[in-house]
Write a protein that binds this DNA or RNA. Structure first.
Length: 804
RNA sequence: GCCGGGGUGGCGAAAUCGGUAGACGCAAGGGACUUAAAAUCCCUUGGGAGGCAACUCCCGUACAGGUUCGAGUCCUGUCCUCGGCACCA
């Protein structure tokens, strides 16, 4: 055997990456594509630590899919960009004492280098960064469209304030009362004027169209729960003075058991409902609650507190006067900010009633004497007048109808979803393009004046005032009112990063245009993205915000589709030593050293082989060697085949295995089952290598199938086989179902369901033939012998089972 | 508490429709090559029992039941685990 050069990924990968750039291999014709395929993956936040293997896992999985589609003849557009605004970047910049405007470009440069090096099929002509004025000009433009449409609005609201970030954070960024970004910092309650997007107006639509999307069920369920639709009724409780207190309940069937009312302490009715002799206590309690943060109020397992207002309201069902209380377990932001308490059938009301000695009346009886508070749904009503004996569901309908006739009830739907607070009192974000005028109020910056540039200020540190650092930049701060020309003040809040990322996918195909956010023709050709792959950690926020923004843009006539991501797949998470990778844990794995040691192709395949792509797994570098061995063996086999130059035909066995392998790799790759696709290719190579001579024809299709996974090696071997053009111009190998199924099969012979023998027959053999052959088997006869055959079960090409 | 996902060898995992459990890979053990090591190649490897042997038998997919000729897969209950939501009325 002649000398075979050794497989040297470092030089080979650099060579092919350079060629792809020179030859514009990864740059589809955006204007005249034959079969456009927009392969989108979630763009990274360019952290200072660089790309870690978790990112690379996600990008590789998405890249494989794009390359796979490319081999199927699609014009694949696979762009990449950077989500570089936001608290994360800014806090890091503060920590190291460098301006983010200096830091971010460095980080991006590192990411670019890493992204090229792992072999992503990116179209670098269309790279974008959210911090680029050419980009955020249009983020601001989108804000203005929403402002004009009345979907962006200002309101004073109790907001979550993180003392560490010194900024408002969204409800979504509060984890169990603590700041998402500072797990040891409690979030406080503050009342501030904020910009909100009216996403709740779209709750029903966001929920409804969810069913039509090609998304995994788990992702859809997360969104559905987040939107949190509850069906119920609004009931009216009247006071003797004539005040009508609306409450929302999902269990109107239990209204006969409502023995008191509870309002949120901030409820606007509290003042008028408070009796003189209770006023001092009530005010004291309200002050106490306000001092608390929004969060500790929401921790569910503490003892209940509350105060009696000294007044009563009439239960619309019983006509009884029931006491009105305030308590912080009732939240102003949900429902009407008031509840009817049914202590017999609600755990929280039960706790409260027990603590304050309020009456508990059972109105639903389930099975055998369940302890209170039972929340049974399948019981029947008791102590409920004419409705006694009715099952809950029916009672619910009838009671609502009965009260509705009296004007005391309305069927209603409530959502858990809150309006999206997009204001951030920070520096590192796109300024909200508004000028406040004493006469005209908040006025949008005229579109021709966009972008409102984020001024370069050295002192961008936030302070506790609740006002963005931008307010300190006086020349920037003062601006003329676009409407009346008077002296006005710029809005100093910047917008949430989730707004940047809500629309980035719209920009990619049109990055070269500065006079429009996206080009209509490009958009109709390429949008919405054909496939979107990303992390499930964004299943709720990013995907929901993006869907919302897209729906609004569609309504306003700016895009031609309603849903941004018709097909979405979530990948799993790469963990290290059983824990999520994080800087604080010190278990972040950077791919560079592994790429250097093993090659990008090996690392790509290892990441895809360590577990199911959609589940993720633990990064353990000891097993990388297995993938590298596979590539080494292929390298050697390919060189041997070329050296031997044998035109030998494939053996029947190799041919059959080849067609089986093509079939498996094709279906598995399409389903993102990359780990099993790789094992199929390994099996195939094992089969090929068992032959006395390795035929080149047996390897060519393997090289094409491998190309999405190990693109550099595939290119090299493809050219070794004498092809001049890129392997990505080759057609995906076809399989022949007949050949895949050719040959003999082993049929299992069972007696009473236990395997007792095997017979080899040609595929498709008749039942009679298989049974006859099976009956000749020694072991089988031993078990059947002397007993009467009650039944024979036959499964074509698989098994025969004798029941005796 | 509510809603999802999951529990299979020493390890990562496979197993279209209910039809040979453990493919593929790692690790481990044995052997070949080598002065030696690395690399490479070959063999063994779920547990147990029996046999000189080609082999044979029993057990085995978290646990307890059930349906079925046949269950990792379906049903009921229990335990554990991961993720999401959570005074949401």
């Amino acid at each position: 055997m002649r000398d075979i050069p050794s497989y040297d990924p470092a030089s080979l990968e650099a060579k092919w990456q350079a060629r792809w750039t020179e030859r514009h291999t990864n740059e589809p014709d955006l204007d005249q594509p034959r079969r456009p395929f927009y392969n989108l993956m979630m763009f990274p936040y360019p952290s200072a630590e660089g790309l870690h293997v978790g990112n690379m896992f996600a990008f590789t999985g998405a890249d494989i899919y794009g390359r796979f589609k490319r081999l199927h003849g699609c014009d694949v557009f696979e762009p990449i960009g950077f989500d570089a605004f936001g608290l994360h970047s800014e806090n890091y910049a503060l920590a190291v004492g460098t301006h983010p405007a200096k830091l971010i470009p460095q980080n991006i440069e590192t990411f670019r280098r890493q992204l090229r090096r792992f072999g992503g099929m990116f179209d670098w002509r269309h790279e974008l960064s959210t911090t680029d004025p050419r980009y955020y000009k249009w983020t601001q433009w989108i804000f203005l469209q929403l402002f004009k449409a009345g979907i962006a609005f200002r309101k004073k609201a109790a907001v979550n304030w993180c003392p560490k970030d010194m900024s408002v954070v969204a409800n979504e960024q509060v984890i169990n009362g603590y700041c998402e970004r500072h797990p040891d910092t409690k979030v406080e309650q503050r009342f501030l004027e904020q910009w909100f997007f009216h996403i709740t107006r779209y709750a029903e639509r966001l929920l409804r169209t969810l069913d039509r999307l090609d998304w995994s069920d788990s992702t859809r369920t997360l969104q559905r729960n987040w939107i949190g639709r509850s069906e119920g009724a609004e009931l009216i409780f009247e006071t003797p003075a004539g005040a009508k207190i609306p409450v929302f309940t999902t269990r109107p069937d239990t209204v006969f058991g409502a023995t008191y009312l509870v309002l949120a302490p901030e409820h606007p009715f509290v003042d008028q409902l408070t009796a003189e002799e209770q006023r001092r206590q009530v005010n004291a309690y309200r002050r106490e609650v306000q001092g608390k943060d929004l969060v500790s109020r929401r921790v569910g397992d503490k003892t209940k507190t509350g105060v009696f207002l000294g007044s009563y309201a009439r239960n619309p069902a019983t006509g009884e006067a029931i006491p009105i209380w305030i308590a912080d377990y009732v939240l102003m932001e949900y429902g009407t900010g008031a509840i009817m308490a049914v202590p017999a059938h609600d755990k929280r009301d039960f706790e409260f009633a027990t603590r304050f000695n309020l009456p508990i009346r059972e109105v639903v009886r389930g099975g055998a004497g369940e302890p209170l508070p039972s929340v049974t749904e399948d019981g029947v009503l008791v102590n409920s007048g004419e409705f006694d004996g009715l099952p809950c569901r029916e009672a619910r309908r009838r009671i609502v109808a009965w009260l509705q006739a009296k004007g005391l009830a309305t069927p209603q739907v409530q959502y858990r979803l809150h309006d999206w607070c997009i204001s951030r009192q920070r520096y590192w974000g796109p300024p909200i393009p508004i000028i406040h005028c004493d006469r005209c109020g908040p006025v949008g910056v005229p579109e021709q004046d966009l972008p409102v540039l984020l001024p370069m200020i050295e002192d961008f540190r936030p302070d506790a005032s609740g006002v963005s650092p931008l307010a300190r930049h006086k020349e920037w701060y003062y601006a003329k009112c676009p409407q009346c020309g008077a002296q006005g003040r710029r809005e100093t809040d910047v917008s949430d990063t989730f707004l940047d990322s809500a629309w980035y996918y719209l920009r990619y195909p049109s990055t070269e245009f500065d006079d429009r956010p996206w080009d209509p023709k490009r958009s109709t050709t390429w949008l919405p993205p054909t496939s979107y792959i990303g992390g499930n950690e964004h299943a709720v926020l990013h995907l929901l915000y993006s869907r919302f923004v897209t729906m609004v843009l569609q309504e306003l006539g700016h895009v031609h589709f309603e849903e941004p991501f018709p097909k979405f797949r979530a990948h799993g998470l790469i963990i290290k030593d059983g824990a999520k990778m994080s800087k604080s844990r010190g278990n972040v794995v950077i791919p560079d050293a592994y790429i250097q040691k093993w090659g990008a192709d090996t690392l790509r395949m290892y990441l895809m082989f360590l577990g199911p792509f959609q589940e993720g797994g633990d990064f353990r570098d000891t097993t990388i060697i297995g993938v590298r061995r596979f590539l080494d063996k292929l390298w050697t086999a390919a060189h041997e085949a070329v050296a031997a130059d044998s035109a030998s035909r494939l053996s029947a066995e190799v041919e059959r295995k080849l067609h089986q392998t093509i079939k498996r790799v094709t279906t598995d790759t399409e389903r993102l089952d990359y780990n099993t696709a790789i094992s199929a290719m390994m099996e195939y190579l094992n089969t090929v290598r068992d032959e006395p001579v390795v035929a080149r024809q047996s390897l060519e299709p393997l090289v094409v199938m491998l190309a999405p996974y190990a693109p550099h090696l595939a290119e090299e071997l493809w050219s070794l086989f004498g092809h001049e053009r890129s392997v990505f111009t080759a057609p995906w190998p076809a399989f022949d179902e007949r050949l895949a199924a050719a040959g003999d099969v082993e049929v299992v012979v069972q007696v009473n369901g236990k395997v007792r023998g095997r017979v080899t027959v040609s595929r498709g053999a008749s039942e009679a033939e298989v049974v006859a052959r099976a009956m000749q088997d020694e072991a089988v006869r031993k078990f059947v012998n002397g007993k009467s055959l009650r039944k024979t079960i036959y499964v074509q090409d698989r098994l025969v089972n004798f029941v005796v």
